[in-house]
């Protein structure tokens, strides 16, 4: 896994308004790091999906943004963590069209396609931590 180096931003996520704020912050950071408009949109969309997952499934959690570095390349790493119910079947949650709450069921898998690395760590009752990384 990519080693996050420098923490750039952190915030709690407890509401839809927080998700919007998180999107705006991440967009500004991605822009500063030099991501293209397309990649900014991809990362921010992933943030929107994963941030909302926290609000819908866990109620509250945190987002931490890091500058990612690995050898020659650098990028952005964002960690979403919560102490919610966790995911019983990670493979099923990552299946397009599966939803436990009546949404489109695309968020998790879709978000994973928008970024270069997608690491998910979740156990029932033990919360969920998702790390996404996008390289410049």
């Amino acid at each position: 896994m990519a080693e996050p180096r420098e923490k750039l931003f952190e915030m709690p996520i407890t509401s839809d308004e927080d998700v919007i704020m998180a999107r705006q912050k991440v967009r500004a950071i991605a822009q500063q790091l030099g991501f293209s408009m397309l990649d900014q949109t991809r990362v921010v969309t992933a943030v929107s999906e994963l941030g909302r997952n926290i609000v819908v499934h866990a109620g509250k959690g945190d987002m931490n943004v890091f500058r990612a570095e690995e050898g020659e390349r650098s990028g952005i790493s964002i960690i979403f963590s919560d102490n919610g119910p966790g995911i019983t079947d990670v493979d099923q949650a990552l299946t397009d069209g599966y939803s436990s709450v009546g949404s489109m069921g695309l968020g998790l898998k879709g978000a994973s396609r928008l970024v270069d690395r997608f690491d998910i760590d979740s156990n029932p009752g033990a919360g969920t931590t998702i790390t996404i990384t996008k390289w410049l």
Partner: peptide, 13 residues
């Protein structure tokens, strides 16, 4: 817009 459409496709919408 193009960046939105590309993102939507990857998202699976």
């Amino acid at each position: 817009r193009s960046k939105i459409s590309q993102t939507m496709i990857q998202l699976g919408i």
